[in-house]
Design a protein around this nucleic acid. Structure first.
Lengths: 127, 127, 127, 127
DNA sequence: GTGGTCTAGACCACG
DNA sequence: GTGGTCTAGACCACC
């Protein structure tokens, strides 16, 4: 299900967050789908349950999932994220990376192409 | 000159790197301009010289500046950056942020607008 | 374990890098072996932990070791080094030293012998 | 005559030493030839005379040149260098670089080829 | 004057 | 227990 790189400098819980976000973006995990339980995922990935817990907690804080105590963790509707604190953060992050990309000489058209490709991917998942 | 958040989880030297990159992107600092000396900047920002040096060294490794020991630190020509390892890193970072932006519901057209604005800013600085 | 010359004009961290490389070349330290922790080595050599860390960091940048934050430092597979930036650097360094050796009158055959001896040493470690 | 890289991390006086050694190795400068005077060279290269002085002094200490006070600096016979302290230093430096080259996977035959090329160059200069 | 190295300590994040 | 960051202050090489 996931491939975590223990050799990476990026903390495992962050890698886990990224992987889960990717699954949501590619719509493998959709609104209100249940995420695997902490214990099961820890077993499958052979990593410490505390690490999973930390990833889930952070995802909840960021608004990507919601927790029903005693039930489990579930994918939050993306609309919840729009108009939240996250939107401003992501926009400013986007502005920063775009500025850097343009500075080092990446072409505007190349960026347009990238946007089209990525939004097509998400749309493709809708069918 | 800069506003650093000593409380932030982001290391001071990384914040400093970002601020300096911003100055280069907005062309306040241009090719071959000299950066403030390690000691002077440390004094102004009331942070340790070693921290400044770490930021400068990393910027040099990333190709944004070059260091002449005994002389000072200077802005590298942006052309140096294109076709380097940095290009792939920035592209994949861009793809990740774009995917996240589209996921939370930011409109494609809004992104196009952002790209135009940012590239106009840089061009404006050329005159 | 190591003998460092604090008096030398060569920085301690560079001397340390050389010593560690020697251990890897003579295969005392092999692929994926763990290096002594920063603190332990600092204690043994009675030098500052920061100095050890600097040596380790540079070795990592040069591709000789890899660092798992929170885990330790480990010997990288030599294959990683071939076809890297290092190869060109070492070749030109080799050419420079060879030219100097031949200039002062060291015999070609003596050099051939040296190459054979050194490559035999490494092979001997394989058994 | 020389091309010095002011952008290099290598001190100018060391670059100068290397350039002069190269000229001796390629036999552009031969035994007992006079080197340009400190003042003239400083003018030509537009660098500080003290820097030239330092390079010459170090070359003399290393046995590559000799100084006749009031007369100038002259290329020492290479034979002087053989059987001196320099020989051991260069041999151990050579062994170190060879070991490193073999470690990263450079082929023995490639090294043999390099030795032949370089010794042919020097021989070619003899005619 | 500049950057480069080094020490002696402290606190934090990670798993 | 591991590496990563940071401070306060020192000394050195280069030009």
């Amino acid at each position: 299900m996931f491939e975590l790189d223990v050799q990476s400098r990026k903390p495992i819980y962050e890698q886990l967050m990224d992987k889960i976000k990717e699954l949501m973006i590619s719509e493998v995990l959709q609104e209100h789908n249940q995420l695997p339980s902490v214990r099961i995922l820890a077993q499958k990935l052979t990593i410490n349950p505390n690490t999973i817990q930390k990833a889930y907690k952070q995802l909840e804080l960021d608004g990507y999932i919601y927790t029903l105590p005693g039930k489990g963790n579930f994918v939050a509707p993306p609309k919840t994220l729009k108009n939240s604190l996250k939107e401003e953060k992501i926009k400013s992050e986007l502005a920063k990376v775009l500025a850097e990309a343009l500075y080092i000489g990446i072409d505007k058209n190349e960026i347009y192409k990238l946007v089209k490709e990525i939004s097509a991917l998400a749309k493709g998942g809708e069918s």
